[in-house]
Design a protein around this nucleic acid. Structure first.
Lengths: 110, 110
DNA sequence: TCGATAATTCCAGAATAATGGAAATATATG
DNA sequence: CATATATTTCCATTATTCTGGAATTATCGA
């Protein structure tokens, strides 16, 4: 993953409202949630929600699927894990990193 | 970790220059790097670097330690892992999430 | 103590992002 | 077909963030 792409994704998550939306999607699982449900749960104006959903979708963190009049959004878990991997990759300068404070509790990722 | 705090941290990482700085710190390990080294490696104006380092420090992702005329910065790995944990917590709506595409390859975190 | 080096703070201009009302698009239902 | 519902797009306003030159603070070495 390019630094540039990772930064875009992190910026997408770096906003209270978008992060709240994203967490709903992560928790919702593979079914996802439609825009109306999200709008109701977070009390967001439709235009505002649309703006943020578009942002999450543009960066690949969320994926949309039309279903009749509704549009369902779900978190792309593969994308999420790529992003998490990017942050920890090549960490700790070769120190045994599972023991250096709490870096990489599962050991240095590939 | 509060949503609000997580969003601030993610926003801090959601900028090309800051993410580049943070990755240098993550790779540098517990010694960290001083501002001059970072400035040289990324070709940043001192004021600009200072601004971004302050941002990373304010959110707790980086920690500074003065050493003579130099100020060393290092990544706070514990903080990083809290943040990563926040993103995946309660994921996948109870589906067996290690098998749902690639969510939580190590299984649902606590 | 003085000059050099490291880094920060101050500041203002430039750029970018967020918000939500209103109009537009699309689908469903009677 | 007409109406209701779901969502998006358009647009203008407001707010926030980024950038880097210049001044400032602090430490080092001769």
């Amino acid at each position: 993953m390019e630094l540039n792409t990772a930064a875009d994704s992190l910026a997408a998550l770096g906003h209270d409202t978008r992060l709240a939306i994203y967490r709903l999607l992560v928790q919702a699982g593979s079914e996802g949630l439609n825009a109306g449900v999200i709008s109701a749960r977070l009390a967001l104006a439709p235009a505002t929600l649309s703006f943020h959903l578009a942002h999450l979708t543009r960066t690949g963190l969320a994926v949309s699927r039309p279903e009749g009049r509704f549009i369902y959004y779900r978190a792309d878990y593969a994308r999420m894990n790529e992003l998490l991997g990017f942050l920890t990759a090549n960490c700790c300068a070769g120190e045994p990193c599972a023991t250096t404070d709490t870096c990489c509790p599962q050991g240095e990722p590939a």
